[in-house]
């Protein structure tokens, strides 16, 4: 039986030193809601656990250049209960809210959700559509990456030995922006996404979509940024025809597998449906930022029930 070492460093430098110096497998422990389960099931047997919850930079939410920076070890519940963040990024909040039960969310972190590298991770598609930047610190200093470039395949991330995801920066949002994340699960909660779809869009003063990002979860080896689907919205008023093109582009981008949670055909079809419905919610949220008398507001669609 191998021994396991537990360390709780107070600084990033100490954490990086521990991880880079580890001889066997070293694991970063944040909320532990994935790691402890994998350890109990015997799927991983780390020699070293580095608990990062004591590092201030990793556990705080701060305003930065009109945007938000939150630490990778901020718990989901802290993020959900941060009113200004939730108001600015309702779609990211949608995704974070879907991660497990309230008890699980009291421990689980967005950094952990990303680095666990499940293609079905609920916070990831919305973070991708938000254009979130990931701050990474390692033996060679600090670097920045895009969320969509972290996970490479199930359980695998692009970080080098000794590197840690430290924080996420969500930029300032242009006016009339809205984002949304929807997933399909057979159960209403306590489930894993069969398909997830995030949409973030911005309207100009005339209500024409000027920017859009669309991301899909659980339909490939990692969450996908689908520019073809975004292109279907840009330049349109996000009308029925544009939404139909969006759905088709989303379905076309899927390269899913058959597994215990769904068939290929099912995922491909439902990805389009989820993307369209998420876009409708994102649209309603962006339209709601117009003045109460604005004509666009009156035609805003309300959230469809799934």
């Amino acid at each position: 039986m191998s021994e396991m070492r537990y360390e709780a460093p107070k600084t990033l430098a100490a954490a990086v030193a521990l991880l880079s110096g580890a001889k066997g497998q070293a694991s970063v422990l944040a909320g532990g809601t994935d790691l402890l389960i994998q350890m109990r099931a015997g799927r991983v047997e780390p020699e070293l656990l580095v608990d990062i919850k004591g590092i201030p930079e990793m556990t705080s939410i701060v305003a930065e250049n009109g945007g938000f920076r939150f630490g990778a070890a901020v718990t989901c519940m802290e993020l959900i209960e941060h009113e200004a963040f939730a108001k600015a990024w309702p779609g990211v909040t949608d995704g974070v809210k879907l991660i497990g039960s309230i008890q699980v969310k009291g421990r689980a972190t967005v950094g952990g959700n990303l680095c666990n590298a499940s293609p079905a991770a609920d916070s990831v598609p919305a973070l991708i559509t938000a254009g979130a930047a990931v701050s990474i610190v390692g033996p060679n200093g600090r670097r920045e990456a895009r969320v969509e470039d972290i996970a490479t395949e199930p359980g695998k991330i692009s970080l080098a030995k000794g590197e840690i995801v430290v924080s996420f920066l969500l930029p300032r949002r242009p006016p009339h922006s809205g984002d949304a994340y929807l997933r399909f699960t057979p159960r209403t909660e306590m489930d894993i996404a069969v398909v997830g779809a995030g949409v973030n869009l911005t309207l100009d003063e005339k209500g024409v979509c000027s920017q859009a990002r669309v991301s899909l979860g659980a339909v490939a080896e990692r969450a996908l940024l689908v520019s073809e689907a975004a292109a279907a919205l840009i330049g349109t008023k996000v009308d029925a025809a544009a939404l139909k093109r969006l759905a088709a582009a989303a379905s076309a981008a899927c390269r899913p597998i058959d597994d215990k949670r769904g068939t290929k055909e099912y995922r491909i079809k439902v990805a389009g449906v989820m993307a369209r419905r998420a876009a409708e919610i994102a649209l309603a949220r962006s339209v709601s930022s117009f003045a109460p008398t604005h004509s666009l507001r009156k035609t805003a669609r309300t959230q469809d029930s799934i």
Binding site: P186, R187, T188, E189, D191, I192, D259, K260
Partner: peptide, 24 residues
């Protein structure tokens, strides 16, 4: 119960063996 080709159970847990939760 979901079995693979070798007759092994793929969903031996409440996450993927879906009994209803209260909100269902």
């Amino acid at each position: 119960y979901i079995y693979d080709q070798a007759g092994r159970l793929l969903n031996a847990g409440f996450l993927d063996y879906r009994i209803p939760v209260a909100s269902d």
